[in-house]
Design a protein around this nucleic acid. Structure first.
Lengths: 207, 207
DNA sequence: TGCCGTCTGTACGATGGCGCACAATGGGGC
DNA sequence: GCCCCATTGTGCGCCATCGTACAGACGGCA
């Protein structure tokens, strides 16, 4: 799964679902004028394509690989059959979907009230939680797309964080040096989402 | 269900689910500093308390009556038992939940990119779609809480709409005079949400 | 009829983010 | 080892929204 690969496009009927292993997938809404905003981010705790088992077949979003890596792909039909058996797997999928709901809700609130600085911290932490490393391969331009802000805004915010010694970055690589420091600067949204995932999916995160 | 009644509070375990008949319920996230933002709005097409059957029992949101009226209340256990029978009712609930996902996603994107003017139009239309009348009983102060903006911002935006002859309001009552005109001024977000609800819940809306 | 409290209108400086333009830097490819 | 281009840094004017403050206006109630 290379960086930037589009798993599905807004409105297209999904053929497969994906279980990220060591990659991250962003769910993005792309507006008519080309602006975009990240709705949620999915890593190995989750599944890309909940619309398949929820019954909608498609959603008005784009699924795009935000950090390269591997993922399992499963034909939609296989997943749907398994889902319909109404076993523990179904419950797991539903609990994950609720966690996703929370993440989206929090994104909405965060977009309304918090500064770019805070959102960048939240975003870095959420992404990092879904990877095994402390390094992200990602240009500021791409981060800006995700957050739905200007690239310059990200440059400025990231500059502050670097000056504070919280992160180090250069040409498309961001390394996190002080995680607790980042958390302290992030808004409550990060914590709310993290706690809700921990509550709903304790086993998944323990793996 | 009186105006302002809180159906559930952030983090509380839900005891019941509600099926609005002629009222509207807002799902609100309230921040630590007291600011708030509406996440989604539920009318007679939907159900309040999806967390119950999704398996989470609770969500970090508040459910509050935004327009007085009546609703059916069902003990959570009854709904859950029915849900577990995995019949058409389950499918309906899941499709509704997906529609809710779309509404939240669109709210997030809208909060990021659109002006107060546009969002007010979207909000009025979404609320109106969930009522039988063309009049909302709601002060600008409350609308501001929902949208997560200043009351003055709503006053200004509403003033423009009134000058254009699209709405008429006075002391807590808003009447919509020109619906197509409002739609024209609303951002794409309204249309996306409406279309998605129509696609996922054709029968519900036809009632 | 008159009062009072709620609701709406208006003003003003502050500020954060936007759009644009362009400079500086550094890494990979030749 | 050098060049080119992707990436990052910086500056500037603009505008929407914010916070605050206070003035009008309407309507229910005494």
């Amino acid at each position: 799964m290379p960086l930037g690969h589009v798993l599905y496009e807004s409105g297209n009927h999904l053929q497969h679902v994906y279980f990220p292993v060591n990659c991250i997938v962003s769910l993005l809404y792309v507006m008519e004028d080309g602006h975009s905003a990240e709705i949620a981010v999915v890593g190995n705790e989750g599944i890309v394509g909940v619309a398949l088992f929820m019954g909608g077949e498609t959603t008005p979003n784009r699924g795009i690989v935000q950090s390269a890596g591997e993922a399992y792909r499963l034909p939609g039909k296989v997943l749907k059959d398994e889902f319909l058996r109404a076993g523990p797997f179904q419950h797991l999928l539903l609990r994950y979907t609720q966690a996703l709901l929370t993440q989206m809700a929090q994104t909405a609130a965060c977009n309304r009230h918090h500064s770019v600085d805070q959102q960048l911290c939240r975003w870095l932490l959420l992404s990092l939680d879904r990877l095994a490393t402390d390094e992200l391969v990602m240009t500021q331009e791409l981060i800006a797309n995700m957050l739905g802000v200007r690239r310059e805004g990200v440059t400025e915010a990231a500059g502050k964080l670097q000056n504070l010694g919280l992160i180090h970055y250069s040409r498309g690589r961001i390394r996190v040096l002080d995680r607790p420091g980042l958390e302290a600067r992030a808004c409550e949204c990060y914590r709310v989402v993290r706690n809700e995932f921990a509550r709903l999916l304790p086993d998944e995160l323990a793996r």
